[in-house]
Amino acid sequence: MGTVNEKFSKEEITLTEFILKIVDWIKYLGSYWYVLLSLGIVGACCGYFYSKTKHVSYLATTTFVLETSENSGVGLSQYAGLASMVGLDLGGAGGGIFQGDNIIELYKSRKMIEAALLLPCKADSNKLLIDRFLANEKDMESWRGKDPAIKDRFRDSILMESVSRINQKYLNVAKPDKKLSIIKVDVTFGDEILAKEFNEGLVKEVNEFYIKTKLKKSLNNIAILEHKTDSVKKILNGSITSIAAIIDATPNLNPTRQAQRLVPSQKSQFSVEANKAILEHLIQNLELAKLNLLKESPLIQVVDIPIYPLQSFKVSKLSYILFSFIFFVFFGIFYFFLKRIIVDA
């Protein structure tokens, strides 16, 4: 019994000492209440003035579905050998740079962002979108100098820095669901017009680049086929004309001299039949190439576009004030806590 009571007594003393230490620390810190309160007031003021520098941010969002044309070549493979005879490739539209997550990197590329920044502003035709961007970035606005137009010698530096900032702070391109082919493009600026027009401009530039690159092979095939078709038509028309000319040249030919008409006429007739067969195959391949072109378009299906008014975001001044107040007070408590430990040591 004595041992149990003694153990209980020691635990009770330990708990008591712990409570006394807490009370002692509270009294110690309480003796500096005016300092902690002053720090809190300073922090609140800093939070208030900082909140004055924070402007409303506007979010412009475009959502689109990326079509994967993996099966676009189905049904055309049977004609691949025939098409290859005239130097064409009617293979399916493989994905290339537009499959998977590569298109996301395309949206973040310098080429696409620069092209979007250099588009004219719809709200003010006298300015480019980069002018509004530089006005939004106060530290970069002076780069333009007194002339509102972008100076040539600063052009590359301005564009490079603008692309870097947009990628780091203002642009977000991602797939909300990895299992789906939906891609979301978010642009956030303090300028509502800039947010909307840059978002639309960037999507437009990527779409045009996508179409131009994706359809380049098919358009080249069509151009080759049309050129060869026109050439064969000219040769065929020439052969038909030759037959008529031979007949006209020997209107009353002696039956014993038929070779003068028959041999040239048969040569031209053979040329007509051969070119007619070639022309049929060329026209068939031309229609197949046009069908392949149709199957590859459209390539991007836009689902949602940004519309006014855009969604806006702004942290309230009260939140900045409370956070700064608590942070400064906590910093003061930590200082006095560390100071007493050092003194006691």
Rank of each mutant, 00 (worst) to 15 (best):
V4W: 05
V4C: 04
N5R: 10
E6T: 11
K7T: 08
E12W: 13
L15I: 04
T16N: 11
W25K: 15
Y32Q: 12
L36E: 15
L39R: 13
I41G: 14
Y50I: 12
T53Y: 07
H55P: 06
S57L: 09
T61K: 12
E67Q: 14
E70F: 15
V74D: 14
L76K: 14
M85K: 13
G94A: 14
G95T: 09
I97V: 14
K108A: 05
R110V: 00
R110A: 00
K111C: 07
A115W: 01
A116L: 07
N126T: 12
L129A: 06
L134K: 02
N136R: 08
E141K: 07
W143A: 02
P148Y: 02
D152Q: 04
R153T: 04
S157D: 03
N167F: 03
N172G: 02
A174W: 01
A174L: 01
K179M: 08
I182S: 00
I183S: 09
K184Q: 00
T188D: 03
F189T: 00
L194K: 01
K196A: 03
E197H: 01
F209Q: 01
L225T: 03
E226G: 00
N252L: 07
N254S: 12
Q260G: 03
P264M: 08
A274F: 14
L279P: 11
L279A: 13
L279K: 13
E280S: 09
Q284I: 06
K290P: 15
L294P: 03
E296S: 11
D304F: 01
I305M: 10
I307P: 10
S312W: 12
K314P: 06
S316E: 08
K317F: 05
L318W: 03
L318H: 06
F325E: 07
F327E: 06
F330K: 01
I342Y: 11
